[in-house]
Amino acid sequence: MPRKDADRLSLILLMTPLLLWLVLLILLPHLGIGYLSLREKVAPRVYHFSFANYIDFLHEPIYWNTLLRTAWMSILVTVLTLFVGFPIAYYIAKVAGRRSRAALFLLCLVPLWVSDLVRAFGWMMLLRETGIVSGLLQWAGLSSGPVEMLYNDVTVIVGLVYTVVLFMIVPIVSTLDGMDNSLIEAGYNLGGSRLTVLRRIIVPYAMPGIVAGCIIVFMLTAGSYLTPVLLGGKNSMWFTEQIYDQFITRYNWEGGSTFGILLLVFTSLVVWAGLRLSGQNLATTVAKR
């Protein structure tokens, strides 16, 4: 009996921080935001329960267009990040020696060492019309005049890929790490070409890591703020910018909360659809070692 009690107590002690974290930092704020989003302001300091904020969203094409645009660009960033990150992850997990492995990991961490703002300004210095890349192009004779590479969607996407690529690499490396090299060798031995081995053995094996990486990258991208705002052009709107504007510029906390909930729901839907389409489910993704 006492043994059991002690076990239960230690379990409770272990779980408490996790539960506190879940409840205080995740559940409560979302409940608060959900509650706010269902209030409609009818007069100064007078609010009613209503779905007006959600209806407003539906009636304003600017809002849902921005949400769709954000989702599409985030999907694009996710796909590009996968294409960039997978070879790097494969190299780190299967090709690199132990020492260069650590170095490569550190290299991938570099983007995270500096703040979002500094990173964005770095890109601006590189890509602006009078910036380094433009200068190099002219110097090399590849361009007759200055080239503006800032303020467009391509720049936003490149900047985002650069920022989030680590979050794709880490989960893929950790699944590939668990893969016995002899599976790959068996793939070749039985007559597989490089492409076959990649497609039928390596990628399926890494699938849990790929899915986890894609979810993280998609969520991070859809929720990012500074990179799209600073690098984006005159027409580019990111949904988080809308949320910021609602909360901060327009003092419209009710609208901002609505947008926050919508972003959460919509990105979750996209993730769910992605899992369905790729035939994966969250349990195998997270639970597989």
Partner: peptide
């Protein structure tokens, strides 16, 4: 502020 905010959004989105 709300009216101005909407106007700014309209301009940005155009």
């Amino acid at each position: 502020e709300d009216m101005e905010g909407k106007t700014l959004e309209k301009i940005k989105a155009a």
